[in-house]
């Protein structure tokens, strides 16, 4: 598996994504500068976390028009795997690779561990997880409140595009377990083709016991299993 990690000005989880792919999975990775026009043969594209373009205008709004995004969107259109994490999720929504939008949190910036429930295992980022599995991963964002119209939310639920939901320690999506006011506790979604997945929590920062959780590992193992299948 070869993973392309897009580096925008302001990305700051690009090296963490590299660490997850190269050091933990033992796979190839390549950093892709935002001005590049070539994905260098990557099977999987990761849009990492950070503050691309300083979050100017709206988080992800400017990064979406980077030259590399034209290639990323073509890759997604061909069915290629794209994973958007945190700011990468915001960029994917702005680029209409994923449905909905990510608004400012209802209670400001949050940096804390959260628990999410895996709602779907039929995506390239969750195929090695079990349905209903609870994962603890950190969040660190100010604009992560997933929003869409009520009709769109119903459609996403019906089509199985809600991939992760914020839950409490017993697996229930309670208001108290929702760190940002996201509609229906949604922490991550996929597109209709199921090849693009976005989420606010950071699996690439949950790979080491030293950092409090290794629950991100199963998501990266899912990528490997999907690409090698």
């Amino acid at each position: 598996m070869k993973v392309g990690i897009v580096r925008f000005p302001g990305s700051n989880c690009d090296d963490d994504a590299w660490h997850a792919v190269v050091d933990h999975l033992g796979q190839d990775a390549v950093m892709l500068w935002h001005k590049a026009h070539d994905l260098e043969g990557a099977d999987v594209i990761i849009l990492p976390g950070g503050f691309s373009y300083g979050d100017y205008l709206r988080a992800g709004a400017i990064a979406r028009f980077s030259p590399i995004m034209r290639e990323v969107m073509a890759h997604a259109k061909r069915g290629g795997i794209v994973i958007g994490i945190c700011n990468g999720f915001q960029i994917a929504c702005e680029a209409h690779l994923l449905p909905g939008a990510l608004l400012p949190n209802d209670a400001g910036y949050r940096s804390m561990p959260v628990t999410v429930r895996v709602e779907r295992t039929d995506t390239p980022f969750t195929s090695a997880a079990s349905a209903g599995q609870l994962l603890t991963m950190p969040i660190a964002h100010g604009e992560g409140r997933f929003t869409a119209s009520a009709d769109e939310l119903d459609r996403l639920e019906g089509d199985g595009q809600v991939v992760f939901r914020y839950v409490d320690s017993t697996g229930n999506p309670t208001p108290a377990s929702n760190p940002n006011g996201a509609s229906r506790n949604i922490a991550g979604v996929c597109n209709g083709g199921r090849n693009v997945v976005g989420l606010m929590p950071h699996p690439e920062r949950a790979m080491e016991p030293l950092l409090g959780s290794t629950d991100g590992l199963v998501l990266f193992e899912s990528l490997l299993a999907t690409v090698n299948a």
Binding site: L57, A61, F65, G100, A101, T147, S149
Partner: peptide, 8 residues
Amino acid sequence: RLLANPVT
């Protein structure tokens, strides 16, 4: 196209 997000 850019200055506003029509969703929100």
